[in-house]
Design a protein around this nucleic acid. Sequence first.
DNA 1: TTAGTTTTGGTCAAGATGACCATAACTAAA
DNA 2: TTTAGTTATGGTCATCTTGACCAAAACTAA
Lengths: 239, 239
Amino acid sequence: MKRVYYSSANVSERQAAPPSLAISTVIFALRPSESSGRPTLWLPLVRRIREPFKGLWALPGGPLSHDESLQSAAARNLQETTGLAPRYLEQLYAFGGLHRSPTQRVVSIVYWALVQPTEAALADESENVRWFRADRLGHLAFDHNAIVDYALGRLRNKLAYGSVAYHLLGEYFTLAQVREVYEAVLDRQLDPANFRRQLKSTPEIEETGEYLQGGKHRPPRLYRYTGRPGLDPDNRSTP
Amino acid sequence: MKRVYYSSANVSERQAAPPSLAISTVIFALRPSESSGRPTLWLPLVRRIREPFKGLWALPGGPLSHDESLQSAAARNLQETTGLAPRYLEQLYAFGGLHRSPTQRVVSIVYWALVQPTEAALADESENVRWFRADRLGHLAFDHNAIVDYALGRLRNKLAYGSVAYHLLGEYFTLAQVREVYEAVLDRQLDPANFRRQLKSTPEIEETGEYLQGGKHRPPRLYRYTGRPGLDPDNRSTP
DNA sequence: TTAGTTTTGGTCAAGATGACCATAACTAAA
DNA sequence: TTTAGTTATGGTCATCTTGACCAAAACTAA
């Protein structure tokens, strides 16, 4: 057996070894806050069961196997930790600082995803997989706090310009629900009338004949998103 | 000598090997077109001297060594092929399709850079390094045509929103020169008066007391860019 | 001196945006 | 049954931005 793994090599050989490559995924979903009941951003983390950073929470991820694309590796992360399929999945950034991991040089290609949390996702919580509020994470393993911050910045930017909010919602939604997503992510209040006017002028939002019943006040009309399910739109140019 | 390189392993071992990691760089510079004399986008390419794609032109790049960061590896590419230091350098995308290279699985983390071409850069042209017009590249090695297209899209986008045009110009420039950059990259004419009004309202553009002499017409005022030299602004969050 | 060209400053209408008002429609409490 | 409370929805108004266009200033070359 000639196969030699670098992890079993001695120190000088580890130095000469090329950096190893991993895929991680920042998975965002909306969940009502326990206190206010308003939607807030949550994301699933995985507890590290070995060194380095054993016991700390980290982003789901793992090594890239030779026969899967970057995006499908990220989708597999998502599936394995939450049981969910992504509604939106896009490459975030490649993090390759020299000292991200104390034991070896690791380059992580990080994806970010939007999903809608279902009962299935909650059922997949366990001792080593748990959902956290994005604004109350504590200290994570590696540079994962910085990565989540960067992903939050990207989410805010895409939300303000692109049409990404709908991937956090179900098939039918009210305009007030969309506004709540914006308010949660951008962390500021928006004028309901002005916000409504903007959404009415975007062609991807389609009016349905249905209304949301059961509320305490005037029943709002339900709408539907007719744009593409955004799976890595950045990657159009490469197969 | 226990060190084993995967490239010398047999087929089944190559299959099991992790994907190898490379850094490439798309380097843009402005150069006057021979025909019209107006500035156009050019980029340097390197001729492949071994298989695969031996003889074809490719983006400058190479493997990532264990002791350099992603960005400094890209800056080294830049230095080695052009002799220049980057005025602007930012990560573009990680390309990791399964069949980018016919011989092995390669994941390329690609950076894009803006420089101003000097005599030094021209002197560094050789049999195996040459500058090409970005819109007349021909067939490149690997998926490098797609990568350049993606980089061009990013450049157009950053130009339209961000403040990136000045990194293609010298320290002093006229507003008409900035407009020519926009016209070259976006490939459409812009109204001089309206364009001027917008630039006057951006705080990073500072008026100097100097004027460009020697032209055929009214001497235009010279301006200066006072913003940061944008070296990977995306990477603020990670050291 | 004059024609030609670019630079520079300006107007105007159309469109987008934020602040704000008013009515419609429903629930829940009186 | 009435009334108060709340959200949904439609609208106005002033302000800002944008694109189209006009005109004078300033220089060169003939």
